[in-house]
Design a protein around this nucleic acid. Structure first.
Lengths: 252, 252
DNA sequence: TTAAAATATTGATCCAGATCAATAAAAACT
DNA sequence: AGTTTTTATTGATCTGGATCAATATTTTAA
């Protein structure tokens, strides 16, 4: 509490130990002293604005980013102009872990709304992880979670129909907002219908029609970007409904 | 070279330093001394046979597995009996990284053909990674690569048509076999058509028809599980062909 | 060796969701 | 305020690949 270290007002605004997200973010599980050490390697910049790039495909990898406020989308472009949205990233989430192996970014990170991020320089982070076992532990956990998240998306894209995809997407946002202390049932979408469709492997028209239908069915209320989830149970029901793709593979 | 340590014949057969895969696997980038330390925590078991499980969904996470010989599939089951194959794993590849965060396995690993694996107990590995920075480095790299691989699958499932999916799959196998010193153009599929279809988000009938068509077009020769790739360039052409999904999102 | 079960192939039909098209409504410029 | 551009909605049509169905082949069991 009464640390003797001199901190400026500016530092106070941004330090991990004063950040409400630290229990979700990289500092999770670190003790006070170690958080301070981590803090010292982190670069904070002024807020980024809509359509800014945090990094682009092919950029040299400098470090991973933690979202503080706002939201980010990551996507991969193909030469023919088609994109694949890989994810939407909310406060407390980490971006850029896929670039560690190759040393350059394999996707582009674009700002969806005014957003503040922390840049954690990777080389320093790796050195510090050797010195702070709990930091290494947390890095392994974060990367492991990322792998699990992507596996879940593979199921979504490989096996689920349009209804299930959108319902799962909305519930995911709901849960993540809730974890962050926001309403689980009322929020604004920072991404367009097009981006949602792209992420979910659906055409924009399909997304639009689904929103309309879900609203007609009383499951939610949608007006432009504003969403109100009226029946979470119904949404959950949609997520794991139809038994399609009954492949008995080798049930041995 | 002339290490004074006493090793039994059995040890010799299996130690990382005598394993031809070490340049692909966990020991990559470690010096001789560190490989020996890593070796000491690794458990080797007798070969597993077709349809054995390495671990099942929900099992307590003990450690990660490195495939030595043979092949493994990982998949997630749903209560309704439908599965999603997450991957096929060849020698030198690591399985189980997704379980680090939760402490229990989120997918099942099933043996496709007689297979030898190394089990690397996770707690010991984490401790050792603090002591051996190059091991921590390699772990970060491996996990990062896993994230990249899964991103690539997301594109495949989200945006590519059936032809592109199968062509990409075959080329991936080709490259991975080549890296491991096997033929890039002739190999046996250890998985069924059903499993391929499941992995690629296609019906088994579609996979079967594609094999037939690719053969008719002179791109490959297929007989049951045996594949001969006759025209790698044609396959590559199929992988990045059609410009579908021309979404101009926000081209800002 | 034969029987039963699993796996693969091929053909016919169907449908969820893509694509095409038109309009409406916001947002961004001027 | 008006004009252009982007984004969203709704309807009509089309199609890639799923599903259904029948048969053939291979593997496993007995």
């Amino acid at each position: 509490m009464t640390k003797p270290t001199v901190v400026t007002l500016n530092d106070l605004k941004v330090a991990c130990e004063n950040c409400s997200l630290s229990r979700l973010c990289l500092p999770m599980g670190l003790d006070e002293k170690d958080v301070t050490r981590l803090d010292q390697i982190i670069n904070r910049t002024k807020p980024h604005h809509r359509n800014d790039y945090l990094f682009r495909e092919g950029d040299t990898f400098k470090g991973i980013y933690a979202v503080k406020t706002g939201s980010i989308k990551t996507y991969i472009s193909r030469e023919d102009g088609s994109d694949q949205v890989l994810g939407f990233h909310l406060p407390g989430e980490i971006i850029g872990l896929d670039a560690i192996e190759t040393g350059s970014h394999g996707c582009t990170a674009k700002v969806l709304e005014t957003t503040a991020v922390c840049l954690i320089p990777y080389e320093k982070l790796e050195k510090l992880s050797v010195e702070i076992p709990s930091l290494q532990h947390q890095m392994f956990r974060l990367m492991s979670r990322e792998i699990t998240n992507e596996s879940n998306m593979l199921i979504l894209l490989g096996k689920r129909n349009a209804d299930e995809r959108l319902a799962t997407f909305l519930l995911s946002l709901s849960q993540r907002y809730k974890q962050r202390g926001f309403s689980a049932t009322e929020f604004n979408l920072s991404m367009s219908r097009n981006e949602i469709g792209n992420y979910l492997g659906l055409a924009v028209e399909t997304v639009s029609r689904l929103f309309t239908r879900f609203q007609d069915e009383g499951i939610l209320k949608v007006e432009r970007k504003h969403i109100e989830l009226l029946d979470l149970e119904a949404l959950k029901g949609i997520c794991d409904s139809s038994p399609r793709q009954n492949n008995h593979q080798n049930s041995a």
